[in-house]
Nucleic acid binder design. Structure first.
Lengths: 349, 349
DNA sequence: TCTCTAAATGTTAGCGTTGTCATATAAAAA
DNA sequence: TTTTTATATGACAACGCTAACATTTAGAGA
């Protein structure tokens, strides 16, 4: 006969344990079964008040933190949302991701985000890496994806929102606005202000399809009015103030001159403003300047900057709303939400 | 006698499956055991070339993506790194997190980041939420934490780096620079330029302890030189261009006037530059202006901005390096890494 | 040739939770 | 009172992987 009680026997195989309190520990202390603890945590109404109190005390006393890995494995789904943006350092995406993370955070979801660096190949890899976490939803940026993205996403079978663009064929849902239309509104504004010789300046247009669509929109509307763009410059690096200065210098030297510039980004426009100041070129008298983004400085620089205001936070909020509705089974719609993009006319035009 | 072969029997209890291929599926197809697949994925050198090839083919054929939840549960640790910053929309933290995520990404770690919004209570909650994922490491910002942070972090037993500051008592490791010293260097610079009536302007100094330390550093060094700060302004909102303009207007009205302003942030300084332009106040002739951050525009605005250049990316890189070394068991040191903060003197002073 | 050692591979059990089914208890209906 | 129904709780297996231990195989040395 064994003299050692069963419960004191060492397990056959030594095993690592995180050392943290587990749900069973809580259950034992509260004198209930583990499943009751699990239920209390997921749906407090399903447990009677008396037990709930005891379990909560036990949780408090042990400092119990649920192991979401175990939960995710058991439920075959996790409370993780995967987000892939071109770059989290970009103020636009950072704003959307921040709003999105806040909305998901309120509901107990964690956001795994990663920057694809405008590299479609890399985006494929990142999406695949996210799927390894069995995410409850996926958020991508735009419609330009790597060659394997469609297959990977389809296999994942999770709700997907492609944000920041709506002019394309989404995998599932899309939240954003029409960049081509935004570009056209800038062109119409410049034409209405009497500008006839407009230059279009963008950065990384080969990779940034949205900036590219905005610039194309400007050019199309100009052409429709019989005033084709005088000059088109595509800067090879991500938008930065210095390049904006260099680019406007080049545009000002265009044969026949220019009387307006549409930039794909406020940052470039700011560089242009500084360069004009330096050269004594008057804005908007000599040249009108329009940007994109309505960044913090746009309203305060001299002259203040005419620009497009993208719905940065709304994109995040609406993306979260759509995905949560789908996750909760409240909606099966495959929606495309156009949040629009307002033109803010200021002194620079 | 059962006429249905064992393998075709329905399991006793119906159970959900993600539907995705599992490691066993791969193993079966490759004619090996599951552990061989696991080993190949984690340490390719431990599997012979012949088997490795077969397994890789099987993975390819099935489109197998490992379930990291299951792996994390089995190994009692995950390839997740938790990061808590005050705000991911802040360009400084975004740069560090981006670099950090890149370094960890190369090694197969995913980064869960969340914004605490300068709310210590909220930070506690976020840290606790991260721990539910059994992270391999934790990255926090600064030394000001919520009341429960110390206990939570201690219980987690994972390597921790507190980034962006070194002047404090870290839980484990710290990577950053001395903000007080940075502030003092600005004061010395202004004094060396002959400035005697310096105002100090910051934003949210009550919550942003690093900005607060920089401002304090400026004041301390001024006092040491017998030239106490003429004015100190603490703006109630996060740094933005508009508030910078308002604040310098107030400072310029100080009795006796001022001849320099040290801002806690380039964004505020930019607002001040615009406001001075508007008022015809000459920089640096009438008033010198210094910022912090060396943001993109600092080198290009008119006049270009004297500022401090924090090691944004290096903080991320070094944080990742330290944590990975600890995770890999290469180092048990509890290091505090001072990356310094360079003063960039430009036209505005 | 045989033993010894190292490298390669396999077997088993368990990580901590949740889905499914089972059961006890209380409230409502007959 | 008995039957029915709803509510609260529990037992158990399964999720897909990896740690620990076990075994086989190949190569070195005696």
């Amino acid at each position: 006969m064994a003299r050692i009680p069963q419960s004191d026997l060492k397990p056959v195989r030594a095993r690592r344990r995180a050392g943290r309190a587990t749900m069973s520990d809580v259950a034992r202390l509260a004198g209930v079964s583990a499943i009751t603890v699990s239920r209390l945590l997921r749906d407090p109404t399903s447990v009677s008040g008396e037990l709930a109190g005891r379990v909560r005390d036990a949780i408090e006393q042990l400092g119990y933190v649920p192991n979401l890995m175990a939960g995710g494995l058991a439920a075959a789904k996790s409370r993780i949302v995967g987000v892939v943006v071109p770059s989290i350092r970009n103020a636009f995406f950072a704003a959307s991701v921040d709003a999105l993370a806040a909305r998901f955070g309120e509901r107990g979801y964690a956001v795994l985000d990663s920057s694809a660096d405008y590299d479609l190949q890399r985006e494929d890899t990142l999406i695949e890496a996210m799927l390894a976490w069995n995410p409850a939803a996926l958020v991508l940026t735009g419609f330009a994806h790597g060659p394997r993205a469609a297959a990977i996403v389809a296999r994942a079978g999770v709700p997907v929102v492609e944000m920041w663009d709506i002019a394309g064929r989404p995998f599932d849902m899309a939240v954003g606005f029409d960049h081509n239309a935004a570009g056209r509104s800038v062109a119409r504004h410049l034409l209405a202000r009497g500008r006839r010789r407009v230059a279009v300046i963008g950065a990384m247009l080969g990779r940034d399809t949205r900036a590219s669509a905005r610039c194309a929109g400007v050019r199309e509307e100009l052409e429709r009015a019989g005033r084709a763009a005088v000059d088109s410059i595509d800067l090879p690096r991500a938008s930065n103030v210095g390049d904006g200065a260099v680019a406007i210098a080049e545009a000002l030297a265009a044969p026949g001159g220019i009387d307006a510039v549409a930039f794909s980004n406020d940052v470039l426009a700011l560089g242009a403003i500084f360069e004009c100041q330096k050269r004594g070129v008057r804005i908007p008298d000599d040249v009108a300047i329009a940007g994109f983004g309505d960044l913090d400085f746009a309203a305060h620089c001299r002259p203040s900057l005419t620009t497009l205001r993208p719905p940065r936070e709304q994109i995040g909020n609406e993306t979260a709303r759509l995905l949560l509705a789908r996750i909760d089974g409240l909606s099966a719609e495959r929606r495309v939400v156009d949040l629009g993009c307002e033109l803010i006319a200021r002194e620079s035009t």
